[in-house]
Design a protein around this nucleic acid. Structure first.
Lengths: 228, 228
DNA sequence: ACCTGAACACCGTTCAAGT
DNA sequence: ACCTGAACACCGTTCAAGT
């Protein structure tokens, strides 16, 4: 899972002292830039991506990237969409379980974004790339087959979008800092005379995010999709 | 509503050419800094807030702010919470209409954030301030009175949080750029063979955000809050 | 206690130049 | 066509110094 893909790239620089010319770095390309950007974003977050560092990691001069990319914003766009590929539901066309397909699509979407905690908060801010558009197209088609009227389709999609995005952004932010979360709950305890209810329920602590996500999603779908 | 509070601050600088000493600027204070930060954030967005410009607007030297504020992050925290004050439901204690109270609280919360489009996307990333905690406390208490069991309270709150945050962030982002949105839908039309369903329903255009928000919220509450 | 300018350490991007 | 270093225009923040 977390193993480095050492084998796939044939010749990495083997040390600092190799003879010049013997270090065969793969040539720069849009794909390599995006892949490395994702690595850096995973490691350091949105604010931690620096163009210079990105170029450095690619073994290139600081300004070489601008041949392949207009600016930093485009790096974000490409990295974001690259992370959102979807391979479709388990049984591409054979399934009659619309509800199951929809849940699968939305949970997969959420999982993708949680693997790259910077992605969820970026998604609403940027132009929609082909991968997320593909997801929306498939979601739309499936909702339609499930019996949602054309007039209700946009409402249904946006309700689900809102829920998934909100859940994932929140989950990702809270996940970043375990200590911060504990500190927040502690601060709450100190102020327990002001916030007795949420202090007592330990709102900021040990919450079952996955279960809560699934439960709220079920309620939404109950309302949005008519019973056959 | 949007009138400047001209009367409250007694002496503003009256022009550029006054004798030195005659221009009585209100003294620097945490409150003034936060209020001006909100103005700048409203005008230029999250990325548009610069410490120098903020100081400038306050008629202070660039570094004076740091006497009142640790760093820029704290400016964000204070500005964010300052925007989230809540005055409570229409009838503070007399109401028996739990459902109505909850809807009121959540719609007011959303409205507050939409008045300051930068706030929604900031909220999940920052520590929770007193005002948002107060809102959560009140929401929690009301849900509890409405019959939500203690064991289900956190799930209910987080489901609603997720939905409101997701809806508001999305709405705020799409609202920023009318042209971008049209351009996006146009791009979709160009690719209509790839995304026929969402192209046909004009997903990226003329959507009834307020109505969609309300409808999805109702479905969520139907599921979360037991009937009477 | 409160405020300041000069200076430092960045970071995205332009540009003119190299191969 | 592809890559580069020097340079510019920022921006947050430290610091030593002023009142």
């Amino acid at each position: 899972m977390t193993a480095k893909l050492k084998g796939t790239r044939s010749r990495r620089s083997q040390g600092a002292g190799g003879a010049p010319g013997s270090e065969q770095e793969a040539p720069l390309s849009s794909e390599r830039i995006v892949a490395t950007a994702v690595e850096l974003l995973d490691a350091h977050g949105v604010d931690g991506l620096k163009m210079r560092q990105l170029a450095d990691r690619l073994g290139a001069g600081a300004m070489s990237l601008y041949w392949y990319v207009d600016n930093k914003e485009q790096v974000f766009d490409l990295a974001l969409d690259s992370v959102l590929v979807y391979r479709g539901p388990p049984q591409p066309d054979g399934s009659r379980d619309w509800r199951g397909d929809i849940v699968h699509m939305l949970e997969d979407w959420r999982t993708c974004m949680l693997r790259h905690p910077w992605s969820a908060s970026l998604l609403p801010r940027r132009a929609l790339g082909p991968n997320i558009l593909g997801r929306l197209e498939l979601l739309s088609k499936t909702l339609s087959r499930a019996g949602v009227a054309d007039a209700d389709l946009n409402v249904a999609i946006w309700s689900l979008w809102n829920y998934v995005i909100g859940a994932t952004i929140t989950r990702a932010s809270f996940d970043v800092s375990d200590d911060d979360r504990a500190a927040a709950q502690q601060r709450l305890t100190d102020l327990s005379e002001h916030y007795p209810t949420i202090e007592r329920s330990r709102l900021l602590l040990d919450n079952d995010w996955d279960g809560a996500f699934r439960k709220g999603l079920d309620f939404l779908l109950d309302g949005l999709v008519p019973k056959h």
